Amino acid sequence: MEVLTIKKVVGKHVYGELYECDPGILMNEKDLVEIVKKAAEIGGFTLLDVKAWKINPGVSVVGIVLESHISIHTWPEFAFATVDVYTCGNKGDPVKAYKHIVHALKAKRHTLRVASRDYEDN
């Protein structure tokens, strides 16, 4: 008798655009790093590292979490940011992490999309 082993990858990608954010926060590299750290904590993820790059006047921040990554890219001159929270596995809540970033950047409106990144091999 043959035994089937089902292999599955669980992934969730939460992403969107944030409008009418606080431009002062969007250009502050230190604040954005702290926002990503707190988002990882609120989401229940294991933070491995955070890197930030000042791209005048904006900033790009990537937090590497054991479960995948959190990123923020900003355009303060447009009071605009894009955010991605991508997780592999069932640990944590990427929507909570995303919503923390929306609140921390003081976005007056935003989009929120959720995409499944699952894969099953049977």
Rank of each mutant, 00 (worst) to 15 (best):
L32W: 06
K37C: 02
I101W: 04
A39T: 02
P76E: 10
F45N: 01
V85N: 06
A81R: 05
K30D: 13
K91H: 06
W53C: 11
S60N: 11
S71Q: 06
P94K: 10
D49F: 05
H73Y: 12
G58T: 07
F80C: 01
P76R: 11
G89D: 11
E29A: 14
L105M: 07
V59P: 00
E77I: 04
D49T: 04
K37N: 12
D49Q: 12
K37D: 08
K38A: 10
I101Q: 04
V61D: 02
T87D: 03
E29I: 13
A81L: 09
N56K: 14
K99D: 12
K38P: 00
K91C: 00
E67R: 04
I42R: 07
T74E: 08
E77R: 11
A97I: 07
E67S: 06
K51T: 13
I55V: 15
T74Y: 08
L48V: 10
V61S: 03
K54R: 15
W53Q: 13
W53S: 12
H73A: 10
T82R: 09
L48Q: 11
P57D: 10
I42Y: 05
P76I: 10
A39I: 07
C88Y: 14
I64Y: 10
I42V: 15
T74R: 09
A52C: 08
G44H: 07
Y98C: 05
I72V: 14
I35A: 03
P94T: 09
V61E: 01
S68N: 15
L47D: 01
K99I: 09
P57A: 11
N90D: 13
A52H: 03
I64C: 00
K108L: 13
E34L: 12
H100P: 00
A39W: 04
L32D: 07
L48R: 13
L32C: 07
C88E: 13
I64F: 13
E34T: 03
P76D: 11
Y98S: 05
V61L: 03
A40C: 12
G43C: 07
K99Y: 08
V85M: 06
A97V: 08
A52R: 09
W75K: 11
K30L: 11
K30I: 13
I35P: 03
A107Y: 06
H69S: 09
T46R: 10
V62G: 00
V62T: 12
A39Q: 04
V95P: 00
A97G: 10
V33S: 01
S71I: 01
T74P: 04
K51L: 12
V50P: 00
A107W: 09
G92Q: 08
K91R: 15
F78P: 00
V65D: 00
K108G: 13
E29N: 08
L47T: 02
D93K: 11
A97R: 04
L48N: 11
K99H: 06
N56D: 14
A39F: 04
L32I: 06
A52K: 11
A40I: 03
K99R: 15
I35K: 06
V62D: 00
K37G: 10
P57R: 10
V102P: 02
Y86L: 15
A79H: 14
L105P: 03
L47N: 02
G43V: 05
K108D: 09
H103S: 15
H103Y: 12
V95H: 03
F45Q: 01
A107Q: 09
K38R: 14
L66M: 09
G63Y: 05
H103P: 00
T82I: 14
I70Y: 02
I64L: 14
F45I: 03
